[in-house]
């Protein structure tokens, strides 16, 4: 879900950042008005928790593992506005210090994961609570947990859909003189199914397991943990984990739901119309893989010097890596 740089054009990144700004401003304003001063510190610590949550590998059925974003859980614990800021900071740390997710694409990533995800997740949780008539807090723990799971599932998929749309509009808008796409080359008909199949199943499931597991733990052990639910009154500390059988059933359901992603794309895989991929008419040739050296209109010797520098640097790097890995063999005996 973390979009790296160069998949979106800088102008798309600028637009997405502009779209994220109102979300940030709204969140900061709401927090300033609502959050008691001592809770401001909680925001930083909440961001740290959010960052850590993203590092965890969630156990999945069949022994595999998956990662969760955890945006909905943070929203349930701290409120959607605080979650927006906390996830933004966690994403900034990832982008700036770990190179995970682009710097230019930071606005787009924030729009998807720190605005769409927690807000959709939180408000659909609220909606499901209403639908299931789960207002009696102590009595309807199961319904609350179900709502949390459904909310997180909708949240992550809404965010994935946004990311897919951002990818998908790139080839329509940005191409070079030869008609070659400059950024993400896949149109909506490819990007939406590609993103949604993964998120409707595996990543959606990881998010649901993550949210439900921690939600039910906190519901059982610390009743006052949840945002806006002071009366989440004492529930006996009998904690039941989210068993792998339940997760397996859920995965089956999610897999059955996968074709929904294909429906959303309009055209299915392999059935693109000729107007959807204008560049397909050109015959494929491997020569096109090598960029044209005279493209920049620069003299040929500049290209030679550049390739010499790049070549020498790569060789030095390789040798230094080999050297470093040989040195690091320590004999502990």
């Amino acid at each position: 879900m973390h979009i790296p740089d160069n998949y979106l054009s800088p102008s798309t990144c600028a637009v997405m950042t502009a779209a994220a700004i109102p979300a940030w401003v709204h969140s900061v304003k709401k927090l300033k008005a609502e959050l008691p001063k001592e809770k401001m510190v909680l925001l930083g610590v909440g961001a740290a928790f959010s960052f850590l949550g993203m590092m965890f590998n969630v156990p999945m059925p069949g022994g595999t593992t998956g990662h969760a974003v955890g945006g909905t859980l943070i929203a349930l614990l701290l409120g959607p506005e605080a979650a927006c800021i906390a996830v933004t900071i966690a994403l900034l740390v990832q982008a700036l210090l770990f190179g995970d997710g682009g710097i230019l694409a930071f606005g787009a990533n924030c729009f998807n994961m720190s605005f769409i995800l927690p807000f959709v997740g939180y408000y659909s949780y609220k909606l499901f609570c209403k639908l299931f008539k789960a207002d009696e807090l102590g009595a309807s723990k199961g319904k609350k947990i179900l709502s949390a799971g459904l909310g997180s599932y909708l949240g992550i998929n809404a965010a994935a859909l946004m990311a897919a749309i951002e990818f998908g509009i790139q080839p329509m808008l940005f191409s070079d003189a030869a008609g070659q796409p400059l950024y993400c080359p896949y149109g909506l008909s490819v990007s939406i199914p590609a993103m949604m199949i993964g998120h409707l199943t595996i990543f959606g499931l990881a998010e649901v397991i993550f949210t439900v597991a921690i939600y039910s733990f906190l519901a059982a052990n610390s009743s006052d943990s949840f945002y806006g639910e002071k009366g989440f009154s004492s529930i006996e500390a009998s904690h039941q984990g989210f068993g792998s059988r339940k997760a397996g059933i859920l995965l089956g359901v999610l897999m059955l739901a996968t074709p929904l992603g294909l429906l959303a794309a309009g055209t299915a895989w392999g059935e693109w119309g000729i107007d959807e991929m204008p560049t397909m008419t050109e015959s494929f040739s491997w020569n096109a893989l090598m960029p044209d050296y005279t493209l920049g209109g620069l003299p040929e010797w500049v290209a030679y010097i550049l390739s010499a520098v790049i070549g020498v640097a790569i060789v030095i790097i390789l040798f230094r890596i080999i050297g470093a890995s040989m040195k690091s063999k320590t004999n502990y005996d």
């Binding site: 796409p181 950024y183 080359p185 991929m277 560049t279 494929f284 491997w286 096109a288 893989l289 960029p291």
Partner: peptide
Amino acid sequence: AIFLGSPRSMLTV
């Protein structure tokens, strides 16, 4: 993408 008509994307991106 190479087979979808934009072979250069892989290298440039």
